[in-house]
Nucleic acid binder design. Structure first.
Lengths: 251, 251
DNA sequence: ATAAGCCCTTACGTTACGTCAATGTCAAGG
DNA sequence: CCTTGACATTGACGTAACGTAAGGGCTTAT
């Protein structure tokens, strides 16, 4: 199919000005220009525009998009899979915001008041993005491993004794957290003891411990609702507390 | 608590420049300025910043935000409920985009090719916003249709056997819910079994299952009081439980 | 007392378009 | 055939929401 500026614009939900601008900066050149100067777009341009919009949706700036799409080793499949990952991350962030709204509402209606930190959970897009790039894979691998670990730890070389020890440790961490939240400070001695326990717990499955990775994981505890839910199921605010404790510990 | 520019910025995930800009345009004035000219923010400013960020996240421009927050009949509760609605809408749009990516991928891998229209589903934010009310109604009408569908499923190509099977499934879901609510956790094994049953049940009428859509429907179960009433008639809290179970399941 | 890390204001730069303005093109109807 | 109205074109200027750099004070730790 062939489209004029308006037609393609309507199709994709962008303005004519936008398409002319994209032409101007060389991001999306029309397939051809007819004798009276009209821009005519073909199927290849349609697909390219789709790619552009995927990137734009994720907040990538136009010059970067251009570089990416024009790079000789650009692979559409990989790009789409990346889009998918990032969209999922964005949805997780949205879910955090939804939780935040709900909590704020209930606090307003006389529920439990929120800490100032809690009031901004879900907004720090950039931090989450950066963290994901740095530690995301590590954490994801870890998370995947966790599931495996739990069900058949023997395969990973852990003896049953060790596994039991690990579980006991996990329980102690939770129990300590439940007691500490709201009473102790994360940077205080009890908070630091918990962080130390957590480091020990980690050492069962992490081949090599690093403070940076530990801090990154802690950040994940509040950024990824799966973790948050896990810790908060025993006591609300536990994930937050643990995060702060570890952050202080890793410094 | 009192905060300086940097402290509040770090807390909320915005830059110092941003806070100074907000001061400049009168959107967020500091509680006070100390003798050496430092901006000092108090608890009221923290809350106002939170409100600002909620609006900003939804794409409202700063001058409009200012008008809203300064309007004499501004009501925080209503605003939060609005935020909630819009965030849900945004999530629906994200789900559309996710589907789009998935379809594009499968088309690339030799699946069914997409029409040019389909290539841009999920991008037209503005249209979605405008049509939100319309869309919502459509969905609700669709729900009405679903009820009709269910009652005379033969028209939809379901054999009577299949239909009976479907009803049995529905009954099992209700029965399991009644037992589980208040005793089991939604993320626990029983909750997940119920979510799985629900997925199976859905598959009778949905042409293609997607986790995103499943989760979206679950959200509807608590957002639309007709759904809630349907599930809660047997046991209070059942809709909530089912929602949580499905949400965990779809992750 | 010197460095590090905050804070201030002023001011210019940037991105991704929106919005005129002045003008040419094209299909449809009276 | 002519007009009309919706489209198209190229400038050119405007804008929102900051980023960034320059030049200079304040506070705290070593």
């Amino acid at each position: 199919m062939e489209y004029t500026v308006k037609q393609l614009g309507d199709l994709a939900g962008v303005s004519g000005r936008t398409l002319r601008y994209y032409d101007q900066i060389g991001l999306l050149k029309p397939h051809m220009v007819n004798e009276s100067g009209y821009r005519i777009y073909g199927p290849k341009e349609v697909d390219r525009l789709q790619q552009i919009l995927f990137y734009r949706e994720l907040g990538v700036d136009l010059s970067t998009i251009k570089e990416l799409l024009d790079s000789p080793d650009f692979n559409e499949q990989d790009a789409l899979r990346e889009h998918h990952r990032h969209l999922l991350a964005k949805r997780r962030q949205l879910d955090l915001l939804l939780q935040n709204v709900e909590q704020t509402l209930s606090a307003l209606e006389g529920g439990k008041p929120m800490s100032d930190q809690e009031k901004f959970i879900g907004f720090k897009e950039k931090l989450i993005k950066e963290n994901e790039e740095k530690y995301g894979q590590e954490v994801r691998e870890k998370y995947g491993d966790d599931a495996v670990d739990a069900s058949n730890a023997k395969l990973m070389g852990l003896t049953e004794d060790k596994y039991a020890e690990m579980q006991k440790l996990a329980e102690e961490i939770i129990a300590s957290l439940v007691k500490a939240v709201g009473k102790e400070r994360p940077e205080g001695p009890e908070g630091q003891r918990i962080a130390e326990l957590h480091r020990k717990w980690l050492s069962f499955t992490w081949p090599n411990y690093s403070k940076a990775a530990h801090a990154g994981l802690a950040e994940m505890y509040v950024a990824d609702e799966r973790f948050t839910a896990y810790y908060d199921q025993h006591k609300k605010g536990a994930a937050q507390f643990l995060r702060d404790a570890i952050t202080a510990y890793a410094k």
